[in-house]
Design a protein around this nucleic acid. Structure first.
Lengths: 155, 155
DNA sequence: CGCATTTACTTCGAAATATGAACTATTCAA
DNA sequence: TTGAATAGTTCATATTTCGAAGTAAATGCG
C-alpha cells in the first residue's frame, strides 16, 4: 500500500471497490505472466487457456471479446511455434478449428498450473476465500458470456 | 455462453476459475468503457479514478503498475484536456503532484457512477453478492499493493 | 561547502498490439 | 444458379507501451 488508501477505498461503493480489486488483480497477473518467460505473448497465453478443446476461430473471438483479425495473428504465432494446428471444420468448411498439438497440450498444462500459483500469490486468499471468490467469478463470467456477446457485436 | 463451457469450467481449480472470471470481467469492462464515449482513453480513465486526491506521478506509476513515461503522457493528455494540473510537490521539488481541476472532479464523479453501473450490468450480481465480491476484491487489492509493488520494481 | 550519486520526471524513437476495410472461399436461401 | 451472408485472412494504419538517454532537484559524504 503506497499510502493509507485502504481507508479511502472503503468509502466507495461496493461496485467500485470490486472494480478496483479486479483491475489490480488483472494488472498484477499480466505482469506476472511476463515473468513466466514462456515465450508467449499475453494474448497467446489466453488463447492456449481457452483451447481446452478444439474451437472455431469465431468462437474464440467471442470468448476473448476481440476481433477476428486478432485471432488470426495470434493463431498464426501459435501454429508457427508448433502449439496448434488449423483443421477445417467438417460441419462448415469455411471455418477452421484450432486444435492443440501434444506440445500445445503440455504447454497448456504448464500454463494452467502456473496460473494457479500466480493467483494464489497475487491474491493472498486462503482456500475458502478462493473458493468463494471463484464461485462469484464464475457467476460473473456466465453472465458476461450470456449477455455480453451480443452487445460486443453492436455497432 | 458460446457452448456448454460452464460445465467444463467447473472442472478447473478454483484459482483458474477465478482468473477466468476476472479476465472476462476486465475485458467486458474495458469494452464498455469505450462505449462511454467520454473522450478519454482507458489509461486516462484509470488515472482519473486513482486521483481521488493529489498524487505524485511516481506513486501513480506504482498504483497503476506501469512505467513513469506512460504516466507522463497520460498526464499530458489529461492536463491538455483541462482535467488536472501539475503542481510542484513542496516536500520535494523534483516531484509533481497531479491535482484534479473542478472540471476533473466533475468528470471523476461521472466516471465513478458510470463505473458502478457498468459493474452492475456486467456482473449480474445482486447487492449481497456484490458486497461479498467487493470484500474479497478489496482484500486481494490490499495484498497486491502490499506485496506486489516491490516485485514490480524488480530487474 | 562541493562534488558524486540517486531520485523524479520528461523526451522521443522504436517495438509491440490492436483494429478495420477490402478480399477469398464457402455456405445458405430462393 | 445466382445473390447475399458468413468464416477467416491480409495488410496498412492507429494506438499503446516501453525503454534509454536527458534534465533538474535532492541527498550523501568527505
Amino acid at each position: 500500500m503506497t499510502h493509507d488508501d485502504s481507508a479511502l477505498i472503503r468509502c466507495l461503493s461496493s461496485e467500485v471497490q470490486a472494480m478496483m480489486g479486479v483491475y489490480a488483480l488483472y494488472w498484477k497477473l499480466e505482469e506476472s505472466l511476463d515473468a513466466l518467460e514462456v515465450g508467449l505473448s499475453h494474448q497467446e497465453c489466453h488463447m492456449m487457456v481457452k483451447l481446452e478443446r478444439p474451437k472455431r476461430m469465431g468462437v474464440l473471438a467471442a470468448d476473448m471479446l476481440t476481433v477476428p483479425s486478432t485471432i488470426t495473428s495470434t493463431a498464426d504465432a501459435l501454429e508457427e511455434a508448433g502449439y496448434l494446428t488449423r483443421q477445417r471444420d467438417p460441419e462448415d468448411r469455411r471455418a477452421w478449428l484450432l486444435v492443440l498439438t501434444n506440445k500445445g497440450l503440455e504447454m497448456r498444462q504448464v500454463l494452467m498450473s502456473e496460473a494457479g500459483d500466480l493467483f494464489r500469490r497475487a491474491s493472498g486468499l486462503d482456500a475458502d476465500e478462493t473458493a468463494e471468490f471463484a464461485r462469484l467469478a464464475r457467476k460473473i463470467r456466465e453472465n458476461i458470456m450470456k449477455t455480453g456477446i451480443p452487445e460486443g457485436l453492436k455497432k
